[in-house]
């Protein structure tokens, strides 16, 4: 199968990836091939099988409600592409 161009564009939009025309084309066949391969799962009846999200039977991993000193602002902003007055700066939203 191949993914339609529309599907590729929709998924790329959800993933915030600006794809070139060539990338779109390649991905529609590559993703199609992978999904073809994945399709073999359909042969396996699993209606009665409980989905497995965690391999180990773990639950209730909690932390006590004890505050600790936050990080220094300079350190938290040191990697920011752009910052202003202690805030992260982003281009206009609309």
């Amino acid at each position: 199968m191949t993914l339609s161009r529309q599907e590729v564009e929709h998924v790329a939009m959800l993933a915030r990836l600006k794809l070139s025309e060539e990338e779109k084309e390649r991905l529609s066949s590559e993703l199609g091939a992978i999904l073809d391969y994945v399709e073999r799962l359909e042969a396996l009846p699993t209606a009665e099988v409980e989905p497995l999200a965690h391999v180990l039977p773990m639950h209730n991993a909690f932390r006590p409600d004890e505050p600790r000193a936050p990080f220094a602002r300079d350190e938290m902003l040191a990697n920011a592409p752009q910052a202003l007055d202690g805030l992260f700066k982003v281009p206009r939203i609309l």
């Binding site: 600790r68 936050p70 990080f71 602002r73 902003l77 202690g86 805030l87």
Partner: peptide, 17 residues
């Protein structure tokens, strides 16, 4: 995370990774 839960404060002073 263990950052303090406080209203207000200077911007980005109650944060951690």
């Amino acid at each position: 995370c263990a950052c303090p839960n406080q209203f207000g404060g200077e911007p980005n002073t109650h944060i951690c990774p």
